[in-house]
Design a protein around this nucleic acid. Structure first.
Lengths: 197, 197
DNA sequence: GGTATTGTGTAGTGAATGATACAAAAAAAT
DNA sequence: ATTTTTTTGTATCATTCACTACACAATACC
């Protein structure tokens, strides 16, 4: 019954693994959105009762924040890897868009981007947490562009931000990978053209 | 007290105007989303009680459907006007994107597109109603493109659908008109380039 | 006036929400 | 063995949700 082998701590051991709870929460929140996933569903999926849930995670919003952290590490578009400076700016942004399309359409059960689909949720705390990641990603893109195209950084960032949000929305609509990829490449072509002039 | 001058009908006259109710519902649903607007808020904003609400509109989802109809007539991007066949395809699509940016950013209180922001709502009935309008709009665009560029209709439709969804999302984020317009024009440039080859 | 018809106001329905009080259970420390 | 600490299960809490039962009010028809 005891999953956590970390002994030495006093008191009754946990009957479940909190890290698995975060992973499960990430999947559920991504699949159906923060607002639509209830504490009752999370607890029953984990096989625990509400008091265990709140003792381990604090609140539904706190767990969402942990799920966002985990998403950023494991599932989000890895901007830091893709935006290496030894490549043309347009090439880096094209890689970002292509990778976004691939990830957004990878699993139909969790289509789109967890962050982009959460910045409009109705819970103020959860929305604010998602907006932190969203703003950080946009700033990371802007800085990458501004390094070599400072005069076009704002416009191109606005555009790629819109395209990524659109790719996420269309992925949630069920658009398949090849069509999403084609749209991403059209967006990349627009950026390449803009940055070449 | 009687706002509806349509007499001749028996029974106690209505103390409010249902058309104004639809207009108000359109604004509220657009401003905060179907899920976040409660019947209590709608009734109190109209100065009526729940029984009057349900007698006039049937249900919250039925009222949303009426609000969508009104939105399509008064506030949505007028595809039929913009996509006249006596212009290059790329020019028509550019007009659509520019008009979308203008409308999505016109009123900060109702930023974005009511339809695009409603296709992901959690109520199944309301979501289905929004998806009808969404699919109709995409099909209208696809047909316009396919008329002269049948081999590129799917790809370009997917792209402009994603860009419009992205413009709506960024508008809800608070992006101002000029920046939204610049992003729209970059998307239009990508379409023009794609259709010219 | 009398009756049928239609809308309104009061008050409340059951279901679902996120979150808890409380005591028993299970471990370590003494 | 007793105490201390931590987690667990039962049984809720208060609030909000969309929605309605019911009697009264206000009009048209006869």
């Amino acid at each position: 019954m005891n999953d956590t082998k970390k002994s030495g701590r006093r008191g009754r051991p946990r009957g479940f693994n909190p890290d698995e709870g975060v992973a499960l929460a990430q999947r559920l929140f991504h699949a159906r959105g923060y607002d639509a996933v209830g504490v009752a569903e999370l607890t029953s999926a984990l096989g625990i009762n509400p008091p265990s849930f709140y003792a381990a995670f604090g609140s539904k919003a706190d767990l969402f924040s942990l799920a966002l952290d985990r998403y950023a590490i494991h599932s989000a578009v890895p901007l830091d890897d893709l935006l290496s400076p030894e490549q043309p700016v347009a090439a880096g942004l094209a890689r970002v868009l292509e990778e976004a399309a691939r990830r957004y359409a990878a699993d139909p059960a969790t289509a789109g981007c967890l962050v982009l689909e959460s910045v409009g949720c109705h819970d103020e705390t959860a929305r604010a947490a998602a907006q932190v990641f969203h703003r950080a990603a946009l700033e990371r893109l802007r800085a990458f562009i501004a390094n070599r195209h400072p005069d076009k950084a704002e416009q191109v960032t606005d555009f790629i931000g819109a395209v990524m949000a659109g790719l996420s929305a269309r992925a949630r609509d069920g658009l398949e990978l090849d069509r999403l990829l084609a749209a991403a490449r059209l967006g990349a072509a627009a950026i390449a053209e803009e940055l070449s002039t």
